[in-house]
Computed example of a mutant assay.
Amino acid sequence: MTGIIDQSPANGTGVHHSGDPLLVYAVSASRGHDWEGHYECGKRMTSILDALASHGLTPAKHSHEIVELQGINPASETDLELVHTTEHITKMRQKALEEAPCVVADFEEPADNVTYMTKTSYEDALKGIGIAVTLVDQVAAAGKDGKGTKGFGLIRPPGHHATTDAPIGFCLFNNVAIAARHAQERCGLKKVLIVDFDVHHGNGTQDIFYEDPSVLFIDVHQLDVWPGSGQVDETGKGAGQKGTINVPLPIASGDEVAGNCLKRIIAPAARRFAPDIILISAGFDAHWRDPLEQLNFQSATYHKLVSGIRDLADELCGGRLVVLLEGGYSMQGLSEGVCETFQALLKRPPLHPHDADVPSEPLQAAQLALDDVVSLHGLAA
């Protein structure tokens, strides 16, 4: 795997001071991984990059604050084996070579939104995972000296549904889980906090770490939607008991509810766990514009969530924070959410402080839901 890449500004004119925000990001070129008419498509990445450019969130505009990493090596199968079985890895490689384009998931999925592979999907997945582990290397090294560097992997296909031995929910391999194991086994970061705010529960990530006390998994998602997991009483097993915190939100929960999740659950749980690094599974499909489910996060909600988690990283683990892209299928909601995440990581104000036409939130029902989580996990002040 690649070593630490030079973080000096690309044009050689900017100066980054330790302690100032520095956003290190990378983009996986996954244009070959496309299935006609599918929500999870290459247009997602194009929309993100166009929006970043339109807001000047690029190294060309801010070379002293934003660095795009280039020339990152793809992950190796040894990297995949940190999480996945040899049988699963072999199966995915062979399907790409011999059967693609094809549907690969056995798990029940909607007919028009299957988990697919093209001829390049296996290679595209390795490129994305290579970015994920390289960003962990970057923030692990930077965290020794200051709190400035944060990482964002703009990668696809997404990963948080994939289990150790199965592709599920548009996901072939579990990107964030591999990044977590890489942080532990190759960077010496023993305790990992994973926060997942995709609208769908990260069933694969939960399964992988369900009995592992060294990884705290907090998942904020919509109640009772696909894939059906993520109930409040799914809290871990054995040594990992209470190491999984599920926060299922009622339909139409939005910005205020998300802020309450941060304040009442994510922050106290993180402080009690005291992680060495924080990883975010950043899905943007809880946005009110997204076509798949029915949460009503605003674009600035992602600024609020990421700002709060950024502050926790600075407080608890030397600023070590890596964000990895998961879902998000409204091109506007996705691109605005990513731009707000960039803004938050750079400690800048939100670009979209208020979205029009956002329905009112079910505050009473959401409060009861959060009360259950707080009580079950002993998070009350």
Results as ranks from 00 to 15, higher is better:
T90F: 05
H64N: 08
A100I: 03
E99S: 10
G148I: 11
E123S: 14
R93F: 06
K150H: 10
T78L: 00
Q138C: 14
L80K: 02
G130H: 08
D124A: 15
E65S: 13
G71A: 07
E109V: 12
L97Y: 03
E123C: 12
L82S: 04
V136T: 04
S121V: 02
V67L: 04
K147Q: 14
G71S: 09
H84V: 06
A132E: 07
L97P: 00
G128W: 08
S63R: 07
E108D: 04
V136H: 06
E99L: 13
V133F: 07
V103Y: 04
Y122G: 06
A105K: 09
D112A: 09
S63D: 15
A142Y: 13
A142V: 08
T58V: 11
S121H: 07
L82A: 08
T120W: 06
L69W: 04
A75H: 03
A60P: 06
S121Q: 05
C102A: 13
I89Y: 06
T118K: 00
L97D: 13
C102V: 02
A111C: 12
Y116A: 01
F107E: 09
K95E: 03
T120D: 08
T118P: 00
R93P: 01
E81T: 07
T118I: 00
T120A: 03
P74W: 07
E98V: 12
K127E: 15
H88A: 04
G128M: 10
D124N: 10
T134Q: 06
G128L: 11
L80Q: 05
L69H: 11
V133W: 08
K91F: 10
T120F: 06
A96V: 01
E109H: 11
G143E: 14
I72Q: 05
E99G: 02
D112T: 12
V139E: 11
L82C: 10
P101H: 01
M92Y: 00
D79H: 10
K127T: 15
N113M: 14
D145G: 13
V136R: 02
T90N: 05
V67A: 05
A75E: 02
Q138V: 14
K144Q: 13
H62I: 04
L97G: 07
V103W: 02
A75V: 03
A140Y: 07
S121F: 09
G151Y: 12
A60R: 15
V83I: 15
Y116H: 01
E108L: 10
H84N: 09
V114G: 01
L135C: 01
G128Y: 07
A75L: 01
E98H: 14
A141G: 13
N73P: 05
Y122R: 11
D106I: 07
Q70E: 15
Y116M: 04
I131Y: 08
Y116S: 02
K147F: 14
R93E: 08
E109N: 12
A132H: 14
E99P: 00
L97N: 11
I131T: 11
I72P: 03
F107C: 08
H88W: 09
V83Q: 02
